[in-house]
């Protein structure tokens, strides 16, 4: 690189840093938010603080601006302010009303994303059974299916090859497919448990069997899930960009 180009580049970087110092987001409302969905009124999630930790990691690791305040919402109009919902739990819950099912279907079909996480770290249990039951009502023609290892979700930011969490009961996650998108993803490994810290910043739960390695991978999976919800199959597009540009024949060689 010539000296002049280096100087121009340095000037550009300096200018960029100057702008970043003056730039501010368009208010907290504009930042990426998540909400914890209560499966039924009065129900509390055993991992309510975990998603805040994920958002903090997201801010550090990616260009996404986040609002780490995590709201807890019921199925209703307010969830339409947040296109990313997490529903975690251990216990089974009562069937949703027909109105709630309709609203949930509208939410997911319009572009909303729901991450379901089994806090008990089991692939079958009362919580998962209730989830499967309600998903069957929302999508009567679809079934939960395993997300293949090569799916774009596993490469939306980090390159991963399996599911992670506090425990390791399943290498795969399940999902409902809607066209080229997965509006619902179900994790069985207590993903949120691996993210959880107490008020003093200590990890709330041990991660087994691989400890910190596994916890880091759980965060990476969380980042990938958010990036997938934000960008969907963008990463698949990227693979094809050279081909798309090349096939255009818009120039005479």
């Amino acid at each position: 690189m010539k000296r002049r180009e280096v100087l121009v580049g340095a000037a550009a970087l300096a200018a960029a840093s100057a702008w970043s110092s003056t730039a501010r987001a368009m208010g907290d409302d504009d930042r990426l938010r998540m909400a914890m969905l209560r499966p039924s009124r009065g129900e509390t999630s055993p991992r309510e603080g975990a998603s805040r930790r994920l958002l903090q990691e997201l801010e550090k690791r990616t260009s996404v601006h986040v609002d780490p305040t995590v709201r807890v919402v019921d199925i209703g109009p307010e969830m339409f302010e947040v296109p990313f919902l997490i529903m975690s739990g251990e216990r089974g819950f009562e069937p949703w009303s027909a109105e709630q099912v309709d609203m949930m279907r509208t939410y997911l079909q319009a572009g909303g994303f729901l991450l379901v996480d089994a806090s008990s770290g089991v692939s079958q249990g009362p919580f998962i059974s209730s989830v499967v039951r309600e998903l069957g009502r929302i999508y009567p023609d679809e079934k939960l299916g395993a997300i293949p290892a090569g799916h774009v979700l596993y490469k939306s930011f980090y390159l991963l090859d399996r599911a992670y969490g506090r425990v390791s009961v399943s290498e795969k996650m399940d999902a409902i497919a809607q066209g080229d998108r997965l509006p619902v993803v179900v994790s069985y490994n207590d993903l949120l448990g691996a993210w959880s810290r107490d008020s003093f910043g200590n990890w709330e739960y041990d991660v087994v069997p691989h400890g910190d390695f596994q916890r880091e991978r759980a965060f990476r999976l969380g980042v990938n899930l958010v990036m997938y919800a934000l960008c969907v199959n963008y990463k698949e597009d990227q693979v094809h960009i050279p081909f798309i540009l090349k096939r255009r024949r818009w120039k005479v060689n």
Binding site: L32, R61, S63, H65, F157, A229, Y234, D237, I241, I244
Partner: peptide
Amino acid sequence: GRPSWDERFLRRFLKKDPNVDLISFFILRT
């Protein structure tokens, strides 16, 4: 410049239109 819901919904709108040939590029990390 950074992934956001605005980007996400606009991309979805453009992707669904069969008359649009979309190339997206998102800055995922700075």
